[in-house]
Simulated scan of single mutants.
Amino acid sequence: MTHGMRIERLLLTAHILAMVFGVAGLVLVLPHPTWVLALPVAGQRLFAWSMAGGGIVYILLGALAVGLYGLRVLGARLLWGFLVPAVGLSLGSELLGTSTGFPFGHYGYLDGLGYKIAGLVPFTIPLSWFYMGLVCFLLAYGGLGGLRRDWVRLAGAVALGSVLLMAWDLALDPAMSQTPVPFWEFQEVGAFFGMPYRNLAGWVGTGAVFMAVAAGVWGSVTLNLSRRDLTLPLVVYLVNFLFGAVITLGLLEGRYWIPIGLGVLLGVIPAILCWWRAGQAVSANVILPELDLITR
């Protein structure tokens, strides 16, 4: 194992632990304020800091882990070719959404996710679009290895990857907007468990746009991704989905099993199947026109 891979695993572990700590605080501790009051002063301060800054930490750790993974497996050109449109276009979509209500519906961010760009969108939000977008795209691409034409495979990865991204939101959105400690709120009553239907369409559309732009930047590239190569993306996808699902089911009424179940059907199961179909090859090669570049 290389030094870079050790750092990836360390960041991934810290990312997971930050989410576990956040879930425990939101689901177990906050509903029982006497537990917090029983802590020593230092413990109360630590808990208050974690509730105020925990969202920032877990997103930053996830973006760093996936970024280092992408640099190792994809190389700098392909990583930046995805990161720039993912961050730039998702930020533009979020700024448009918080200003006009298109494409997600009328909503606004509260405190807890860091400095707000233009006073509207926390800087961590485009980073979450990047790291979850990349893992969704790579899982979809790996699962569609049977498609021999590069452009067909890339188009399929854009379509499936954007659906995987939206499926994650089915678990995340109720957890982040409707629980006792929300991070954003809709300014309209959504027909789908508090969410406007166009919010789901906005997720698919935003993901599809920046994935399509990234696919265009990548051009004629063939990635031979094995199960081993896609293990980190699968773990990131599953733990982030579980994070939202546990908070939603732990703090909201039982009928929220429906969006969680849809998320499992449209996201978790396809993600696992994509990982399984990727095969057991040992290495991930990037084949470019006129060049044979092996990224390891």
Rank of each mutant, 00 (worst) to 15 (best):
P40S: 15
L37P: 07
L64V: 04
W35C: 12
R45E: 00
V73D: 09
L61R: 00
L68H: 15
V57M: 02
P40C: 15
Y69T: 06
A65R: 05
W49F: 10
G81W: 10
R77I: 10
A86E: 11
A63N: 05
G43C: 01
L64C: 06
V87E: 08
A52Y: 04
A42Q: 08
L78P: 00
V66W: 04
V87Q: 04
A86K: 12
A52L: 05
A42I: 06
P40G: 13
L83W: 02
L74V: 03
L68I: 15
G70P: 10
G62N: 06
F47S: 04
L39M: 15
G62Y: 02
P85A: 03
L89F: 10
G54H: 03
L39N: 06
G70F: 11
P33Y: 03
P40F: 14
R77H: 03
A52K: 10
P40I: 14
S90P: 04
A63I: 02
S50R: 03
L79C: 08
V41H: 11
A63T: 06
Q44L: 04
W80F: 14
L71C: 06
I56Q: 07
L39I: 09
L89Y: 10
W80T: 00
W49A: 04
R77D: 09
A76G: 10
L39A: 14
G88L: 09
G54R: 06
M51G: 10
A63M: 01
G54N: 03
A76Q: 13
W35G: 13
V66A: 04
G81I: 11
A42C: 00
M51Q: 14
G70N: 12
A65K: 06
I59V: 15
L89D: 02
A63V: 11
L83E: 01
A38D: 15
V87P: 05
W49P: 07
G55M: 05
G67W: 15
V87F: 03
P33T: 03
V66E: 02
P33Q: 08
R45T: 04
R72I: 06
Y58G: 07
L46G: 03
V66P: 08
L74G: 03
G75P: 09
L71P: 05
L37C: 02
G53F: 14
T34P: 01
G70T: 09
L61Y: 05
V57H: 01
A65S: 08
P85C: 00
A42D: 10
L60G: 07
L89H: 07
L37M: 06
F82I: 04
L74H: 13
T34H: 14
W80S: 08
V41Y: 09
L74P: 07
A38G: 15
L60Y: 10
L37G: 00
V87R: 00
G62S: 08
V41K: 12
V57F: 05
P40Y: 13
I56W: 07
R77L: 09
V87A: 09
Y58H: 14
L60M: 11
R72G: 10
R77T: 11
G70M: 12
V66Q: 03
V84K: 05
V87N: 02
L61D: 00
I56S: 01
L89K: 11
S90A: 11
T34C: 02
L64K: 05
P40V: 15
A38V: 14
L37W: 00
G67K: 14
W49Y: 01
